[in-house]
Design a protein around this nucleic acid. Structure first.
Length: 971
RNA sequence: GGGCCAUUAGCUCAGUUGGCUAGAGCGCACCCCUGAUAAGGGUGAGGUCCGGUGUUCAAGUCACCGAUGGCCCA
């Protein structure tokens, strides 16, 4: 024998060349960091999104529009919450496209507002007043544009498709113009009013703040108890109890006790507030005369002030209603009021009431004024925009002093008047400005409001809420509660970076001058020049182009008009996108109401609500048919992410490391109806899932290299039970995922798809059919049948990938030869959704599961043999099944079972096994060493004496003699 | 301080109207294969279902109390 090693290798190699081994150019690894951006460039170059819109331009199904909530342009980078939001949106638009709808997506950006203005002001060396408002606005615009560019590229990197070339911006001229048209109409219809009202006010930023712009933090305040002297006793009525009269004989020594943590608001005190239901007591003290306060709080009072109180008499506040009370240091009466907000949780049960500095105070006084029009209290708010006292405070020492420094002055005065009963420092949760983090105050100022109750807005909004599908359902409760409890919407801000409130005043009287034609005129100017001209042009310039009769109507030129310089709340900007975007781009977006708004759950009080209210006012209905909310992204331990803790997960980092598809797969694995988590562990799990899916698809493709569906497909009724079972499972997966996406249950995607790839394909179908694919003659019916199944799998799975893994779907599509493409789509992401029909009846399913159970039993036995070192692969064994009626097992079934088991032989017999047994179970299932000779080509053990090309397909490819020669050599 | 939501194996999720010896996939451990190979197959170990108290023949599932986390409001 010559150089046996060399001969051996050659022979083996030549036999291997006769196999149909898988072939593909499709790489096993995604190399996503490099390939995804290339893929995205291709999409852009080929205008794939535009192609999608064109394909659905005349769809019978019409529109399924998801209207984008505009992210705020405060930063050039996106965070993981943005990624979750945009990816969920992309699932919807891509899926609905696949279902046949026109599902356009026009991304938006929210560019006005306080945070941007503050950021820009901060960057100015000379501060806010070193530039003109017009200049400041230019800087804000540039700042937003820069951030938009950054956000856009990162959003696109996520693989989100949409009209990125023509997004909408709340800062666009046409948007601004439409916004003041909406405002004008709302004003004309009586929804908008101007009024004095306490609002959260930041004296540092010199602006009113929305509730959403206030955050709570601990703050140490001066906590004081103050005596309010009773000037005149209550008018005696029958209800006044005789004992109490006796107690109250000397009125000049009696005071009501209040508690406050804002001493500086005392100059604005106009009333004291009591609760009907609380028991009050009158107490004798040694140094402070008689004091009146709630019985439940007297102990607390004594502990904090050291003032001993001995009870003289208890009563309800109604008894003293007509008492005349004096302000502790001003020559002014304080009214006696009742309010439900007065409690015995803290304080004294008597509440200092300054309607200019508190919401409850304001409401209770407003109510009083409504009921007593002849003795109105009005509102006193003696601070200017900077929080400095003016003359209205009535205290000369305070004029010119910032409120935060006024407490000491007020406390000194109280001491002088002997009205201070106690003083401590008090730490509590207190509202702060969300931008500058300074404490904020309530301050009554002139503001513009949307009234919740004019024209029954609140009621109409509640009705509209009922017409909407809220996902998850609890969202409905949440927004209903908010809408039914909210106060009037303050829409004015004392800032420059925003859309102006387009109103004019008579310079002499201060009266509002409104005319619809003026608004229309200004809107038209904005449409050309943007709202910048409100600051850049003079009032005369702005009004110059008005028709003569309109000028006359508004009193020009006889009187001088001045502009309102407040801007609108940014929530008003984004709140009217339904009109300024959806309606304005009706051809593209299909008009109102849109199918879906999809945002984080914080938007119940933000965009969902501002959109609802403005839409109800302007359009008479909700702007959306459905609202989907998702939770927040937390770290792996369920904690909020924060820079200081260092647990922030950056989506850009994930994408540069693993690709957008992995990030998207994460989104398709978590239950967004609650808060979701992300961590390295979680991401690496997604990396594994991605690999499995990719590799499974790669296996399908590589084994179809010589398959032409037009020529080689085998009819379903000629497929065996394993084939049909696999197709049946495919249909089940398809319908599960279709239903999941129809109901927005995206988190079913990963488990369903992964389970199918792992269990049904990798472990079962692909493993079992591998030998057939490789070793059978290329045109063998069973091989072509298997390839038919593989092709069906491919054809169904690729569309299934599209909404979640568009880059992978595209990668596959681009690797398919023309004859294997089932669609004329130039891009994989343009494919229609998957279609698959169940092919097995219940009996067949049941029967096949029995076969799988048998396979499991055999596997257990084989494992015993493997662990014992007796065998390696199943082909080294044959299985012997002892059955009562072996003749009832058909040849077809035997063949199928042998295929499933991957063993060299399978025997059904009434008798026990003749040969030495490797392992057995229940005296009916035996594993034996395989008989015959290991075929060097297919590695199964073959009885070459008895074999034919039918029982041993290798012999149809290579002659028995050559096979045996190879056996000799390798032996 | 008030309201709402969540809490099932290391991870992500299933667990219909109370009947479970609590499931899946991944991950992990061990074994095999080397013709899906930076792949593939097999077997297996992991859970006082956040804690407590009730209701019930029976509770992961219902009620109450509490813990932790999250959101909203004050």
């Amino acid at each position: 024998m010559t150089t046996p090693a060399a001969t051996d290798t050659t022979k083996a190699k030549s036999l291997k060349d006769t196999l149909n081994l898988p072939q593909t150019q499709f790489s096993m690894r995604a190399n996503a960091a490099q390939k995804e951006p290339e893929c995205q460039q291709q999409w852009e170059k080929a205008s794939v999104y535009a192609q999608a819109q064109a394909r659905r331009a005349h769809s019978d199904k019409g529109f399924y529009t998801l209207h984008d909530g505009p992210p705020y342009l405060s930063a050039p980078t996106i965070h993981i919450g943005h990624a979750l939001n945009k990816i969920l949106k992309d699932f919807v638009t891509r899926y609905q496209y696949q279902r046949g709808f026109a599902s356009p997506y026009v991304p938006g950006y929210d560019g006005h507002g306080l945070p941007i203005e503050n950021a820009v002001v901060k960057s100015l060396k000379g501060g806010r007043h070193s530039v003109t408002p017009a200049e400041l606005r230019k800087l804000c615009r540039d700042f937003g544009a820069k951030n938009e560019a950054g956000q856009r590229s990162q959003f696109e990197r996520l693989g989100v498709w949409g009209n990125w070339e023509q997004p909408y911006r709340t800062t666009d001229a046409a948007f601004e113009a439409e916004q003041i048209r909406v405002f004008g109409q709302l004003y004309a219809n009586g929804y908008v009013y101007r009024g004095l009202k306490p609002v959260y006010w930041c004296s540092h930023c010199e602006t009113a703040l929305a509730d959403a712009e206030v955050e709570y933090d601990t703050h140490t305040s001066d906590s004081i108890y103050v005596a309010f002297k009773v000037l005149e006793p209550p008018v005696a009525t029958s209800s006044v109890d005789q004992d109490l009269r006796n107690v109250l004989k000397t009125w000049d020594e009696t005071s009501f006790v209040i508690w406050t943590t804002t001493p500086w608001t005392l100059p604005a005190n106009l009333a004291l507030c009591f609760n009907w239901e609380i028991d009050y007591g009158i107490y004798q003290t040694t140094a402070h005369g008689k004091l009146v306060l709630a019985v439940d709080l007297v102990k607390d009072f004594s502990e904090k002030t050291g003032i001993e109180c001995s009870l003289l008499k208890t009563f309800r506040a109604k008894t003293l209603e007509s008492a005349v009370i004096n302000h502790p240091f001003l020559d002014r009466k304080s009214a006696f009021l009742f309010g439900d907000h007065v409690t015995t949780d803290a304080g004294t049960g008597v509440v200092h009431t300054a309607p200019g500095h508190g919401m409850d105070d304001y409401l209770v006084c407003l109510n009083h004024d409504h009921e007593h029009p002849n003795s109105k209290l009005g509102i006193l708010s003696p601070l200017n925009n900077k929080g400095v006292f003016n003359d209205d405070c009535g205290v000369p020492e305070l004029v010119g002093i910032h409120y935060s420094k006024a407490n000491d002055v007020v406390i000194d005065i109280l001491k002088q008047k002997n009205a201070l009963l106690g003083h401590q420092k008090f730490e509590h949760s207190y509202p702060h400005c969300w931008r500058c983090h300074n404490p904020v105050i309530y301050r009554a100022t002139d503001q513009w409001f949307v009234s919740m109750d004019n024209n029954a807005l609140r009621k109409e909004a509640m009705t509209a809420i009922d017409t909407v599908q809220w996902i998850p359902e609890r969202g409905k409760t949440r927004i209903s509660t908010m809408v039914s409890n909210r106060t009037d919407w303050c829409i004015s801000r004392q800032r420059v970076w925003g859309v102006p409130i387009p109103m004019l005043y008579d310079a002499a009287t201060g009266d509002v001058v409104f005319d619809a034609d003026v608004i229309a005129h200004i809107a038209n100017l904005f449409e050309v020049h943007t709202s910048d001209i409100w600051w850049g042009w003079s009032t005369d310039q702005l009004l110059d182009g008005l028709p003569a009769e309109v000028k006359t109507r508004i009193g020009l030129p006889a009187r001088t008009l001045v502009q309102e310089m407040d801007i609108m709340d940014v929530w008003f900007d984004s709140g009217i996108t339904h009109t300024a975007v959806v309606n304005a781009r009706k051809e593209e977006l299909g008009g109102l109401p849109v199918a879906l708004y999809l945002e984080g759950s914080d938007q119940h009080r933000g965009w969902f609500q501002s959109s609802l209210l403005t839409s109800v006012m302007h359009n008479g209905k909700a702007p959306y048919q459905r609202v989907l909310t998702h939770g927040f992204v937390l770290d792996g331990n369920g904690r909020k992410m924060s820079k200081s803790v260092g647990n922030v997960v950056d989506p850009n980092k994930i994408m540069s490391q693993y690709g957008a598809d992995v990030l998207r797969l994460w989104v398709a694995s978590v239950d967004y109806t609650n808060d979701v988590r992300i961590s390295d562990t979680i991401i690496s799990q997604m990396v594994e899932a991605y690999k499995k899916i990719r590799n499974t698809l790669r296996f399908l493709m590589s084994n179809l290299y010589d398959f032409d569906p037009a020529q080689h497909s085998v009819a379903t009724d000629r497929l065996d039970l394993l084939d049909r079972y696999t197709l049946h499972r495919l249909a089940e997966v398809t319908s599960t995922l279709t239903e999941a996406f129809d109901t927005f249950a995206f988190h079913k995607y990963v488990p369903t798809l992964q389970n199918f790839c792992v269990v049904d394909l990798s472990q079962l179908y692909l493993d079992v059919t591998k030998d057939i694919l490789y070793t059978y003659p290329a045109n063998h019916p069973e091989r072509r049948a298997t390839q038919t199944v593989l092709f069906t799998l491919l054809k169904t799975l690729v569309p299934m990938l599209v909404p979640v893994l568009p880059h992978l779907a595209e990668d596959i599509w681009q690797h398919l030869p023309e004859h294997q493409r089932w669609s004329d789509a130039t891009s994989g992401v343009l494919l229609d959704g998957p279609q698959a029909k169940p092919v097995l009846n219940v009996n067949d399913q049941e029967h096949f599961r029995e076969l799988l159970e048998l396979k499991e039993s055999v596997n257990s036995l084989l494992e015993v043999c493997r662990k014992g070192g007796q065998i390696g692969s199943p082909s080294e064994t044959s299985v012997w099944i002892q059955a009562l009626h072996p003749e009832k097992v058909s040849e077809v079934e035997k063949r199928l079972m042998k295929k499933l088991l991957l063993v060299s032989d399978l025997v059904y017999s009434q008798n026990g096994p003749p040969a030495a047994v490797l392992a057995s179970q229940n005296e009916e299932l035996y594993v034996l060493p395989a008989a015959g000779t290991k075929c060097p080509r297919c590695w199964k053990h073959i009885d070459f004496d008895a074999s034919t090309s039918d029982s041993h397909p290798c012999e149809a490819v290579v002659s028995k003699a050559d096979l045996l020669a190879a056996v000799e050599v390798s032996a």
